[in-house]
Structures are given as C-alpha cells and as structure tokens.
Design a protein around this nucleic acid. Structure first.
Lengths: 131, 131
DNA sequence: TGACATCTACGAAAGTCTTCGTATAAGATG
DNA sequence: CATCTTATACGAAGACTTTCGTAGATGTCA
C-alpha cells in the first residue's frame, strides 16, 4: 500500500508523536503548511479506510495511530525509487544521497559501519552458496 | 518540475537510449507494461508541453529527447525523499538502500570510495571554517 | 493515382488526489 | 433545558493523471 504525498506527511507525524488526536495532527501539519482542520480530518478518514491508520473512538476526540509501519513503508518507497529511478543501482542512489545533503561526520561514520556489515553479510552468503 | 510515475518511465528510456522515435519508446515501455502506442505518444506530447522533453519534427516520425537532465532529476527526487520520508537522515536512507537490495561487492566497494571522498570533503570544509 | 501503412493530433472518459464547506452529533456550561 | 463549543461525517468541486478511441495527415508503392 503506497501512501500519497499528503498521507505521508500525516504518517510522519504519527510515527514521531505516537497515537494522537486529529487536533494534534492538524497543529503539526498546519505549521508545515497552512491547512484546514477538516482537510486533515478527511485525510485521516480516508487513510483509515485504506488501512494506513487505525483509530480509537472511545473518547469523543478520536485517537489515531499509524498502522503502516515506519520501516516497512520507508523500505517500500526506497526500493521503488531504486528500481524506477536508478534501475537498481544502489551505488548511484547513495551517491545522490551523499551529494544532496552534505552528511555529518557522525552520519558518515555510521554509514561506514553499515557498509562493513553489508560486506560481512555478502561474505556469509557467498560461503553459504559454496556448500 | 516533478515528473509523474508514467513520465519517469519514459524519461528513463530516453536517458538510456538517447533521442529516439515514439515507436522506439513505445517498444521499450510496452515490454515493461503493455501499453498502447497512442498512450505513450500522448504522454510525450504532454511532457513536451511541460518542457520535460523536446522533439525534432524534421522527419515524419518525430524524434524525442529528454530535456530534464538525468542527474538533476534524480537529485530532486532523492532530496525530496530524504526530507519527506527520512526527515533529513542520510544514514537512515542509506541503511534502507543497503537492505532493500543486497548490494553487490563491486557496488559496496564503490560506495566505500564515495564515503571516503565525502569524508575528505567534510574535512576540507572544517579546516576552511577554522580560518 | 488509389489503396494501404504509418504517424500525429486531440477529445474525452475514468480514476485519483486534495481541499473546502456545510451539516450533524455530542459534550459542557450557565 | 437551552445554548455554546468541539468534533466528526460527508458531499462535491477542481486539478491532475492515465488511458483509450477516433480522426486526420503524410508517405509509399504497385
């Protein structure tokens, strides 16, 4: 299930803040881009129909929470872009990431670590195949 | 200027093949997903209006070429995703790239090289700031 | 030249996304 | 209880995307 642009904005808020009311979602969204309360509400209702979010109706002000998992959704979006925009070339995608935003030294260090891990995993796969 | 999904498919073809006729574009697209010739043509006409492509009308069969630069377009899409989906965290994005497709050893090596380069650049920036 | 193949032009339908406005329900307060 | 406030429900407009079908123009070849 692929969220639209507006839906992604809302999911982001829910991922960060956890289960909250429409009012609270609206406050955040409205800061990013002036939007009417009912627009956010409508999106949330549609997202519920799609199964992207769920809500607790016990109190008068419904509490919404993300159903679409952050990691899973991000993974889908990334692999989609990897294929459609970069024809599967991970290196090209990473190159653009590093260029588009001068990554901080901490981030670079973190990324190095991930590469090392990925290399280890690849190693493991190869030796497994040899059997 | 942000291409739609279908437009991106077509741009990809033009980026790979260089200036070609509608017929040739259609052959590639049709292989990926069965599509009528006139659908591809219509997209190309719309894309021309948007300025994403240009065409040479000298021969009867028009020759289309990409105007939207590959690098530039990719960069826009990546930085857009970086902000909207990962709140600016390059490391998180790269993590997903490495997971979503087990990168080949060659690619990993290439990525390492890019990291080293990025670190050098960061080093340079820091010493420049110290002055 | 007439018939056929090849291309482009273009209207329009169908679906989706986004936003807004209004109606309605439910709780709070005097 | 009447009224005010706070929320949700929901229809619908407008923009955009995608796809299809038909009409018309142009080139080819017997």
């Amino acid at each position: 299930m692929k969220p639209t642009a507006a839906e992604l904005e809302i999911l982001s808020v829910l991922w960060e803040q956890g289960p909250i009311t429409v009012k609270d979602v609206h406050e955040v969204i409205n800061r990013q881009k002036p939007t009417l309360y009912t627009t956010v509400l409508k999106h949330l209702q549609i997202m519920q129909e799609k199964g992207l979010v769920a809500r607790d109706e016990h109190s008068k002000a419904h509490i919404y929470r993300a159903v679409a998992a952050k990691k899973e959704t991000q993974k889908n979006l990334v692999s989609d872009m990897l294929e459609r925009v970069f024809r599967g070339s991970a290196a090209q995608l990473v190159q653009h990431v590093l260029e588009s935003k001068a990554a901080s030294p901490e981030e670079l260090k973190e990324i190095r670590k991930m590469i090392r891990q990925a290399e280890k995993d690849a190693e493991k796969d190869r030796s497994a195949e040899e059997k």
